[in-house]
Each structure stands twice: as structure tokens, then as C-alpha cells.
């Protein structure tokens, strides 16, 4: 399947047979598969790739699934995680889901359920990629602004009127109007709402930094 050919599924499980059988199963669906026998090994060796998902065993010797999830979250890694567990307890699954897990499957699993999870992970990745794309676009649009224009933009997005902005920046009302029209021109925004969205996508108005 062409849509899944560039998507990699990382399987992390301490049991050889589970890794092997799941690997065969997922490969049959046309995905790339990489297997790791423990969480530490994965952290050390996984390629920096944003198009993929992790099939993660919850109970492993050494670093367990929840700890790996936390480590990845700390690294702001966005790979979706599907948890597998032998005896899934409710508190653990709640914790995992809250921390952003896509799903939680109890062993033994079925192809159907696993693929449903992988597919939603694929969708999740697409969304993340799209958001990432938008952020990059927005950032590049905003990078064209002068420092003064950035200052005006912040105040505009926060909802101040031209008059208030002029008073705050100690410039004339007319100058504010000129800056605003330049901002709209450079970002290609048609109206205030679009401008706000661009500002948000570029990472929550952290423009001054």
C-alpha cells in the first residue's frame, strides 16, 4: 500500500516471539517495521523520524512503557504510541491515555484491532505533519516583519484598537495604520481572524523571542 510505505511502525517488546509475530503481521500490511527488545535500546537508536508510531509493551524489565512515554514527551517527540499489556489495569491505562497514548490493547491482540490503532496513528501523524507545516509557513511569513511591525502585531492580536496601540507605542495613529497594512500585506492575511490564526500557528505568539 503506497500510503503506508513511508510510515514506520516501531515495536518495543521484551518477548522475541511477540516482536517477530507482530512484525510479520504489520509487514503484511505494507508498513516498514523496526523492532527493539527494550525501551533503552529504542531511545538510543531510533531514527529522528516523525512519520511513524510505536507499539509499546507496558510491562518490561528495566524501563517500562510508561517511563518511555514520559521520556519521549520530555523530548517533545510526537510519535503516537499504542500500548500493549498483559493485564491492563485501569489506572495505568488512564495514565497512558492522558499522557497522549493513541490506544491501549490487551494481549493477545487481533490484527483488526492493531491495524485500527495503527491507522489512527497514521492519521494522527498526518495531522501533526500538517500542523507542523502550518507552523513553519506561519513562522516564515512572520519572519518578514520588522521589529516594530512585530510589536504592533502582538498588540493587534491581543485585541487593542489602533488608538490604544498608538498610545502604548507612543507613535501616531497614522503610523499604526501604515504598520497594520504592511503586516496584512506581508502575511497575506485578508482580515484580522486570519492574522490571529497565523500568529497562533507560529507557536502561540512567541514572536518577540
Amino acid at each position: 500500500m503506497s500510503n503506508s510505505s513511508d510510515f514506520t511502525v516501531f515495536i518495543i517488546d521484551d518477548d522475541d516471539a511477540v516482536r517477530h509475530s507482530l512484525c510479520l503481521m504489520i509487514e503484511q500490511e505494507g508498513f516498514n517495521v523496526q523492532t527493539f527488545e527494550n525501551a533503552e535500546n529504542f531511545l538510543k537508536n531510533y531514527p529522528c523520524q516523525s512519520n511513524g508510531c510505536i507499539i509499546l509493551d507496558l510491562n518490561m524489565p528495566g524501563m517500562d512503557g510508561l517511563q518511555l512515554q514520559e521520556a519521549l514527551n520530555n523530548k517533545e517527540d510526537t510519535l503516537p504510541i499504542v500500548f500493549l499489556t498483559g493485564y491492563g489495569t485501569i489506572p495505568q491505562s488512564v495514565k497512558a491515555i492522558k499522557a497522549g497514548a493513541v490506544d491501549f490493547l490487551t494481549k493477545p491482540i487481533t490484527r483488526e484491532k492493531l491495524l485500527t490503532c495503527i491507522r489512527s496513528a497514521v492519521e494522527e501523524c498526518k495531522k501533526l505533519l500538517h500542523a507542523d507545516q502550518q507552523m513553519r509557513t506561519a513562522k516564515s511569513l512572520l519572519s518578514k516583519l520588522t521589529e516594530r511591525e512585530k510589536e504592533v502585531l502582538i498588540l493587534v492580536v491581543e485585541g487593542y484598537s489602533n488608538k490604544e496601540i498608538a498610545a502604548q507605542l507612543q507613535i501616531s495613529h497614522r503610523t499604526v495604520e501604515v504598520h497594520r497594512s504592511k503586516i496584512m500585506q506581508k502575511t497575506g492575511a485578508n482580515h484580522l481572524l486570519e492574522l490571529k490564526q497565523i500568529a497562533q500557528e507560529s507557536n502561540q505568539c512567541r514572536l518577540s523571542s
Partner: peptide
């Protein structure tokens, strides 16, 4: 559980 998971898969 692990052998059963593997057998099933």
C-alpha cells in the same frame, strides 16, 4: 500471555 499473543499473531 506472551506465547498466546505470539500464537494468535
Amino acid at each position: 500471555n506472551s506465547p498466546l499473543t505470539a500464537i494468535s499473531a
